[in-house]
Design a protein around this nucleic acid. Sequence first.
DNA 1: TTAGGGTTAG
Length: 605
Amino acid sequence: MSLSSSSSSSVVQSLDMAEEDNPHCPNYGELRTKMQNLTRSGSIGKALEIFHLMRNVSGKPTVYDYNSLINCYLKSNKVGLHDLCGLYFEMKRVELHPNASTFNTFLKGLSLLGESKVAISVIVEMCNYGFTPSFSCLSNLLKKCLDSMELVDGLRVLDLMLGLNYIPTEPKVILLINSLSRCGMTRDACVVFFKLLEIGNFQSPYVYNPILWSLCKSDQISGALAFFCSLKKKGLVHNVCSYTALVYGFGQKGLFKEASGCLRIMEVDGGCYPNIKTYTTIIKCLCDGGRIKEALCALGEMEKKGFDPDIVTYNIILRALSHKNLVLEIYNLYHTIYQKGLSPDNYTATAFSGLLKRGNIGIALNLLRDIVSSDSDVDVAVYNVYLHCLFRAREFKESLFMISCMEKDGIKPNNITFNTILKGICEEKTVDKALEFFERVEWPGKRPDMVSFNTVLSVACKRGDSIMVQTVLNLMEDEGVKLNVVGFTCLMQYFCNIGNINDCLKLFEHMISHGPHPSMVTINTLMVVLCKNRELGAAYQVFSNLKSYGLSPDARTYGILIRAAMNEGNNLLTLKLVEIALEMNLHCNGCIKNVKNCLLKIEDP
DNA sequence: TTAGGGTTAG
């Protein structure tokens, strides 16, 4: 859109008349007032015409006229990025020399519009002109980037701040490190932390605990330990949350001796004590590992030490009991919750999903009814969990009953509900029927999301249904939805299913060179394809290249390769892989047990 | 201002 508008406007006519009065010197003050009024009313094009007319006055317009133009525009309540950029280019076009206020006014406008990326460019330009943006300007921009989760921009703002010797405040640093860690950008979080540690007072565990937790949650306990020890060496003092992260990391790997060791060290060496969250972490890890008896012992120990379990602790145990179908124990614990004056919540309701998976549908539904009829509010996620389990158990009648309960209980379904139903239809009926549902229903999120498309695509790919795959791809194109890593992986599986290995490999190569970046599921899919086609060498090559893709093999990767190596009778490779998997303490025990039996047979035929 | 519990696609 052009900012200069036609010269036949009434504004120019009225100015012509002004010039008639005094052709050599139009009234500058009048022009300025008119320009300001027009800008305030949002007529930016007309205002610019007057701005140009000022050039007839010697020494005008000045940068102050220009700044006043932007200022009035910001007050017009019609601020848009397009006009603002137009104004900026106008400044360049007329070769006006901006001052600090010019830039600050622009930044104010961009902040109003939430345009952090453009604001960063303006700041860089401001610095190039020799002006220094203020601390609060950069600090506010950093906050804006973090609020909108534009983390790469946030990092850029931080660099600009550090370049100007501005040290960000601790809450902003915590927010940045926390956001980076939660988004899988732990490496960046570490770089930020160590950089700031050198220049400011950022030794608090509140600053670095998110990094520690992120490492422990992403299966990097060795990295977490190294990080933990390096900080200790530097004299930083950990708190109970830091130690709990390590407890979690060890517990997830099934290393409970080490987890207990952490408890001892934190008391003896760290001068702090485990709390209810620390104990709950251990209990959760024991439950996840199927060690329910030990989890109950830990619960007893926790009570003995004077910590009253809260509803979170009880929900975790309930969930584990329900997965083991221990109905009597569930009822006992459920009553204990009431006896202790605690109220069951959404998580309590979902904890019974194990019963549904085990076919104990009536009991699970009764318990859900009990919670719904108590004072607790039950949310849509609870119904989604039940619906998902019922569909998975192929209990279609009960699924329909659940949907009617949802309506009756006044629960508004979300896209997850609809995607769950979509998957259910795919499994019970045909992909055609699923597509019918897909196009017929009014999606709660206004339109189907990525998962909706992938749900149908996945089923079509699994069935090797070429027509249906094409239909879904066309539908995605019509809607302007691009295939993501899940869609690509589905298509790789499709090509493998129809025996077209070449196209499957081509897709993978496309992902490597043009994106989307493959995930571990993609790699494992590729591994299965290669091993199925007796291409163990190629599979091993991919495995060796994983680091260059920024990925680490998981238990499934090892399982696939170990099985293929065994099938090919490659004992050397089998042993090598088993050794690495054991060293990494990966939970592919079933697979490793098979290897041991196999090797024993080889040694003693 | 950091930490523990549930749901959809590969």
